[in-house]
């Protein structure tokens, strides 16, 4: 019985602890949105590295929100007017749908395009 109560207390404390911190987080979130969010450091493995020129030269983009977006290494990347690359942290529904149903093609300028 004591063991049952102890387990219940542990679960309750964990839940309440997480709840408090989650509430604090959510309350704090709007303030964070109004501020500049610096770019995150590149994650291990460089999976956020933008597509190399070979990829840009051979791959059809998808046009979305005024950008040519490229699906590369499980992210959509695009280039802004200043030539800097950006990516979507969360895949927009339009791009996800396009990727699922009509994925962008890559062109082989030598091998398969001989005529």
């Amino acid at each position: 019985m004591n063991r049952t109560i102890s387990t219940f207390v542990r679960v309750a404390m964990l839940a309440s602890g997480l709840g408090v911190f989650a509430t604090v987080s959510l309350v704090g979130a709007p303030a964070a949105q109004a501020q500049y969010t610096p770019p995150p450091p590149p994650p291990q493995g460089g999976q956020w590295a933008p597509p190399p020129p070979e990829y840009i030269a051979t791959t059809e983009p998808v046009y979305y929100e005024g950008h040519a977006a490229y699906w590369y290494n499980n992210h959509w990347y695009w280039r802004d007017a200043g030539g800097n690359w950006g990516h979507y942290d969360q895949e927009p529904a339009f791009l996800a749908d396009r990727r699922m149903h009509s994925p962008p093609e890559r062109h082989e300028f030598a091998r398969d395009h001989r005529r």
């Binding site: 949105q33 969010t37 770019p39 995150p40 590149p42 956020w48 590295a49 933008p50 990347y77 695009w78 280039r79 802004d80 030539g83 800097n84 690359w85 950006g86 990516h87 979507y88 942290d89 969360q90």
Partner: peptide, 10 residues
């Protein structure tokens, strides 16, 4: 805000 600059182009 969801488009985060990740690198210089050149």
């Amino acid at each position: 805000a969801t488009a985060t600059p990740v690198a210089s182009a050149t």
